[in-house]
């Protein structure tokens, strides 16, 4: 086998596995309770550059070159507009390097669901569907 053929097969196998894995994990909210991200870590209104939602805040880290950010913006904006006490705040990740290092944001969109006190309760990467956002919000109510 030529090196080119070997490279072709390796690339197709690796990228297919990676793509399938991403398709399975994108847009899924996870409860935040890991050692890297201690539950209860807070984001303040100052850090956000916007007031916290009375009930919950949907934080979206976006970047300039990010197609799914637009989808996420539409979904989260719609949920916020139709759910009393819930706000949507979008942050330009490349302008907030300190913040993305602190929250270990590696790709966009990264989404955080904050409770009324600004504590991070759920986290997702990739564009979620409406049902996933509502399910995550439901556990934050109170």
């Amino acid at each position: 086998m030529s090196p080119g053929l070997i490279a072709l097969v390796v690339v197709l196998v690796v990228t297919t596995a990676f793509g399938l894995w991403r398709r399975n994990t994108d847009g899924r909210f996870q409860s935040v309770q890991s050692p890297q991200q201690p539950a209860g870590e807070r984001l303040s209104a100052d850090e956000l550059g916007a007031e916290l939602g009375v009930r919950a805040t949907l934080v979206q880290f976006s970047s300039a070159f990010c197609a799914p950010c637009r989808t996420a913006r539409v979904v989260l904006g719609d949920v916020a507009a139709n759910t009393p006490g819930v706000t949507h705040v979008e942050i330009a990740a490349e302008d907030q390097i300190e913040l993305i290092r602190r929250f270990d944001v590696r790709r966009t969109p990264t989404l955080l669901v904050l409770d009324a006190a600004g504590r991070v309760r759920h986290r997702a990467t990739g564009a979620p569907d409406r049902a996933a956002v509502l399910a995550a919000l439901a556990t934050v109510a109170g």
Binding site: A64, A80, H88, E90, I91, A92
Partner: peptide
């Protein structure tokens, strides 16, 4: 409510 902070709109 939906808020855009910083330079998102510029991008």
């Amino acid at each position: 409510m939906s808020t855009t902070t910083n330079s998102v709109s510029a991008t």
